[in-house]
Design a protein around this nucleic acid. Structure first.
Lengths: 138, 138
DNA sequence: CGTTACAGTGACGTGCACGTCAATTGATCT
DNA sequence: AGATCAATTGACGTGCACGTCACTGTAACG
């Protein structure tokens, strides 16, 4: 029997391939993110091992990308999430930055809501046009 | 005195510079969008003149960009908006595409709402840490 | 009528976010 | 030990969304 352990969900560490399969990214992408200091996998020899923290960060990275943020933007936002032992000064600064970030995200959500409304309006008009065309054709 | 006219909001046609000032983009960007068939300004000689329709489209373009859509995505979405005299077949296809687009936008809004919730949660935790540090310092 | 001053057209350059390829290095199977 | 296979590193390539530069055209001002 192959002693290759089936990766359990609760396991602490994941290989690069397990990460790729879990998050639908390529190895190149993960290495690129490490080079950009978005991820900090530990090493066993030369191999990368991704921690639970890396997985949480990657989830946020991919989410941020879907919203159109640059990796640099995302990196700065990520740093807001796991800053444990900072002093009060840094903590306050971080808090301010996070508040600002929250503001932009809420603005974006509002704009998105507006865009959805516009598109729905357009859909209604199209539905009406479709109905009238069908009616005209008896 | 320079007779540089102050661009009125209700004017029919706008020059490239008026567009740039109104939308905070560069001339290069507008020419690029025209080359990509996102905008279709009319010409007076060689000069571009942007119509009300171009302004509406540009607004949607910039909005789409803020959501992270590619220009090609945006172009296809734009075409949904001003398709006037199509036949029933095309109209139905357009309707389906628009519905799908609406779905992705709503999914994105939901995800954004979730992300906002996460960040708020993080802010609460930070606020608590800040308070406890301040309290510890008497 | 010369000179600004802005608009247009290529053509090339740039930053970002990776993709791709080659060479190497262990780890694993037989 | 040999072969196989995944992972690493480095270097170069790519597509997108423009920026920048050089040059030309042209309308307007003095």
């Amino acid at each position: 029997m192959t002693p290759t352990e089936i990766p359990l969900q609760g396991e602490e560490l994941m290989t690069i391939r397990e990460m790729c399969d879990a998050f639908q990214v390529t190895p190149r992408t993960l290495r690129f993110y490490e080079a950009k200091e978005l991820l900090h996998p530990i090493r066993q020899g030369s191999r990368r091992l991704f921690t639970r923290r890396d997985r949480a960060r990657l989830k946020l990275i991919l989410r941020g990308k879907r919203f159109g943020f640059s990796l640099e933007d995302i990196r700065q936002t990520l740093d807001l999430y796991d800053r444990e032992g900072s002093n009060l000064q840094q903590l306050l600064r971080t808090y301010d930055i996070a508040c600002a970030r929250l503001g932009t995200m809420e603005a974006q959500r509002d704009e998105l809501t507006e865009a959805i409304g516009d598109l729905k309006h357009e859909l209604d008009q199209m539905a009406a046009r479709i109905a009238s065309i069908r009616k005209a054709a008896e």
